[in-house]
Write a protein that binds this DNA or RNA. Structure first.
Length: 271
DNA sequence: AAAAGCCCCTGGATGC
DNA sequence: TGCATCCAGGGGCTTT
């Protein structure tokens, strides 16, 4: 479910409220993608200093170490003064002095992992190969161009892989490529400099606009207050197979790349 | 080293 | 109503 905009909307929804709070107790439901990596008792008593985001991971800075949260495909977080009885898919509760952070994740592709430090092996394994932040200063055109030119794979899959730039998932990859007028199947290394410049801008622009709209709610995403996002209403191609392109009315085409659906306009994205 | 496939899991939509 | 099949905002791991 959640790509960078949804994760960022989630972060903004509870970061300031939880900052400074002390962990009171932890409840674990069914297993997530990995074991947490420490006893729940180890977390109790620690303060949450800040909530950062790296790619699609949320990082809770604690007194000693950090908690890495990932929403997988179907995860969402809520933060409330108090939490009722956990539902069937509520698999993690972090009870703090400021409220309860609860992870709901039906498919359980998400994760909650404790890392003793930023440089610990587990943190390095999960965060070490991530590309640059598209909304940050380090996302500069020259580096983006150089990195893309080393990749021979279809540009859509290079964006999805997250090793050049993080946070672009299945919705926003199709949307950014549409905005840039680039066919998703084109090999990244074969894109001209002007076209890479358009893509560089489109990635940042699409993600920024999506954050402003509260992200996309396709089936089950909601922010920490349980509210939907609205960016999906502005999708130009994602999920619009066979419907007319909003620019030229040509039917939007759907293909599969690496077992994921890709959407594009064959006329607006000729190559 | 990069690219391509394979899974993990549950639930909703669709088709017979 | 029941059952089978396909599909879904991700990404680590294994194999080419």
């Amino acid at each position: 479910m959640p790509e960078l905009p949804e994760v960022e909307v989630t972060r903004l929804g509870f970061a300031s409220a939880i900052a400074g709070a002390r962990i009171v107790s932890v409840r674990l439901g069914k297993p997530l993608r990995w074991p947490m990596g420490c006893d729940a008792a180890n977390l109790v008593g620690q303060r949450v200093h800040a909530v950062r985001r790296r790619g699609k991971y949320l990082l809770l800075d604690l007194d000693r170490g950090l908690l890495l949260l990932h929403l997988g495909m179907s995860g969402s977080l809520t933060f409330a003064a108090s939490a009722g009885e956990p539902g069937k898919h509520d698999h993690f509760d972090l009870h703090t002095s400021a409220g309860v952070l609860r992870l709901n994740d039906p498919r359980r592709f998400g994760a909650v992992v404790f890392a003793p430090s930023q440089d610990s092996p587990i943190a390095h394994k999960l965060l070490g190969k991530l590309g640059v932040e598209p909304l940050g200063e380090s996302f500069d055109l020259a580096a983006f161009t150089a990195a893309m030119r080393l990749r021979n794979a279809p540009v859509k899959q290079v964006l999805l892989a997250g090793e050049v730039v993080v946070g672009v998932g299945n919705i926003y990859a199709s949307e950014a490529l549409f905005q840039a007028g680039i066919r998703p199947t084109t090999r990244a290394a074969r894109l001209s400099r002007p076209r890479l410049a358009r893509l560089h801008h489109a990635v940042r622009d699409v993600l920024t606009r999506a954050v402003a709209k509260g992200g996309s709610t396709l089936r089950d995403f909601s922010n920490t207050q349980g509210e939907s996002g609205y960016f999906q209403l502005e999708a130009m191609v994602y999920g619009r197979a066979a419907q007319p392109c909003k620019v030229c009315a040509t039917p939007v085409r759907s293909i599969r790349q690496g077992q994921r659906a890709t959407f594009f306009c064959p006329r607006c994205q000729k190559a």
